[in-house]
Design a protein around this nucleic acid. Structure first.
Lengths: 155, 155
DNA sequence: GTACAATGTCGGCCTAGGCAGATATATACA
DNA sequence: TGTATATATCTGCCTAGGCCGACATTGTAC
């Protein structure tokens, strides 16, 4: 009842799942190209994946641990450790052991990381606007609504 | 003119790009869980990424090369070589050198690969229907339209 | 025919994520 | 107190994709 797809008529190459994967790949690839083309950011060698993590650290005032980021981004803990390693090596992020709870390590964007933030945000907005070209605000609202509902169906 | 996002009000964590990435991750993770839970398919150790490639080989009658698949799926050639290696090692795919053009290698699903196909398709449909629960056919049509238009904006 | 460009595959090297197990720390409880 | 459990991070091993260069093969220009 109410199923969108039926096995007998389902065509993988036209499915919403397939399209969504393609769009996601193309959007991140476009963002990577923008990042690589920017004079300042290309020197840092920041990738779209690193960008997404960095945004979470700069765009908030309260301190965050690796676990916090993992929860926000549905990220694997092991992957996050290595991601922080790369960001730290590039001087964009600092690790600071918490003295109250010594299991915890708070993460903080460095001045350099914070300085790169505005330009990164511009790029993110530009890329998304380009992909959403031709859509009205009402369309974007609906699309966001669909995606949110799908995400709720995941759990 | 007509831009959806503005840098001054943009919130990364509520953006369509962020949501789409999340939904994609959750959908593939759900598919991986289904694949791992199935008695027959778990023995093959097929992942969602391998599934997507396999679908393209089984779901068509004409012969395909690695390059053909790369074009269809916007896939990297080097990555495809290694993907085929894994599928071949699992006995799901065969490589066959073309005699007319000896640069070409045609790919073919084995009987085992073909046998696994129907069950895989069922899972794909089931997972997508679950994520689309609560959406009407008209909603799905709109969503697909939005994604298609975004994909066209990529090029 | 030879030189050059184009094509298809492959292999390293990088980033990247998932999973399982190890370690250190903190907390709850008998 | 001692013990079990939970939490946070880290490490090793796997799959996985992007980029670049190597290599063989084919097609094209001269």
């Amino acid at each position: 009842m109410g199923n969108i797809y039926d096995v007998r008529t389902y065509e993988p190459s036209h499915s919403i799942g397939y399209l969504m994967t393609r769009v996601k790949v193309e959007m991140l690839a476009a963002l990577d190209r923008e990042l690589a083309a920017d004079p300042h950011l290309s020197a840092l060698g920041v990738t779209s994946a690193q960008f997404i993590v960095l945004v979470r650290l700069v765009g908030t005032s309260n301190r965050k641990s690796a676990t916090d980021l993992c929860k926000e981004l549905s990220y694997d803990a092991g992957a996050m450790t290595r991601m922080i390693d790369r960001l730290e090596k590039k001087g964009l992020v600092r690790r600071m052991r918490c003295m109250q709870d010594r299991r915890l390590i708070y993460l903080e964007a460095t001045d350099e990381g914070r300085a790169a933030y505005p330009r990164m945000l511009e790029m993110s907005v530009a890329v998304q606007n380009r992909f959403l070209r031709g859509l009205e605000q009402e369309d974007a609202r609906r699309l966001k609504d669909y995606l949110t509902r799908m995400l709720n169906n995941a759990g």
